[in-house]
Design a protein around this nucleic acid. Sequence first.
DNA 1: CGCAATTCAATTGCGCACAACTGAATGGCC
DNA 2: GGCCATTCAGTTGTGCGCAATTGAATTGCG
Lengths: 156, 156
Amino acid sequence: MTTPATDWLRLDQQICFSLNAASRAFGGVYRVILKDLGLTYPQYLVMLVLWEHGELPVKKLGAHLRLDSGTLSPLLKRLEAAGLVTRERSARDERSVEVRLTGRGAALRGRAVEVPRRIAAATGFDLAEVEDLRTRLDRLTAALDAYDPEAASAPS
Amino acid sequence: MTTPATDWLRLDQQICFSLNAASRAFGGVYRVILKDLGLTYPQYLVMLVLWEHGELPVKKLGAHLRLDSGTLSPLLKRLEAAGLVTRERSARDERSVEVRLTGRGAALRGRAVEVPRRIAAATGFDLAEVEDLRTRLDRLTAALDAYDPEAASAPS
DNA sequence: CGCAATTCAATTGCGCACAACTGAATGGCC
DNA sequence: GGCCATTCAGTTGTGCGCAATTGAATTGCG
């Protein structure tokens, strides 16, 4: 006999809840550390991608971050209002909007460089541990993304 | 020489971003699975606590879930509107609000019992792996909760 | 070419998360 | 007993995340 179904209702809280709690705890630390940069964590992620790629359309930005225009459009407007990025319709494809760093946006990178070290310190994890955890999480994400309700309930 | 600071801005994206992505991927699967229960994932978490404890004040509910009244108050109102819980001022302490399951709320547990199994199937992880991951995440959360900006920047 | 299907950003609507604040109730301390 | 700090829940305001829709631009196909 395995664990009664009743207890699963407690167990189940574990994975996803732990994940969720860790994600929110991270948010709290990032909030403190990013405050003097004037960025929220999602905005910081967008800036990371832009620092790496220079410029790219909203669509590609979303592909890197797993976010759609519903989230990115208002976020990018705020970054634009803060003077960190510009947005303009692509000349080659009028459907697309090209996001570019401004001088201020590019310059902000200099102040962001020390963020990762401070975050790493806050976790108390060493590099190997981080890498291992990251690998497991990415595998988990891939499995969840592949989830198909039909296949799960009716494995024909 | 270790990794140049410049690369840390990529590496850094890893942990927290992977965590965040996994959390959102979970959200997507839960959204599908919880749809016929008429619950969102945070609402499901609240119901889990209530199914386990029967009734408890908003404050304790928040302690279990790491949520404050700013999040719980409107959420509980929605659960109340859905007829799953009642909320009433405690007689012993008029500041406190007691949250209780209704008959419908208690009955919903029967239909929720199979949720954990379906979620577990979607992850593709076995029990040991889940337990290991959960442990690491809880340790991470504890470390992040203990984060003190002063101590981090000026280890006197 | 002409028309339908697709692709893209933006918008709307809803719910969550959290900081900051309000106001009522309670408890401690003199 | 009277006062002040604390403890509660609730509200407000901001931002994220996502589904659904809109509307414009592009692509594909006959």
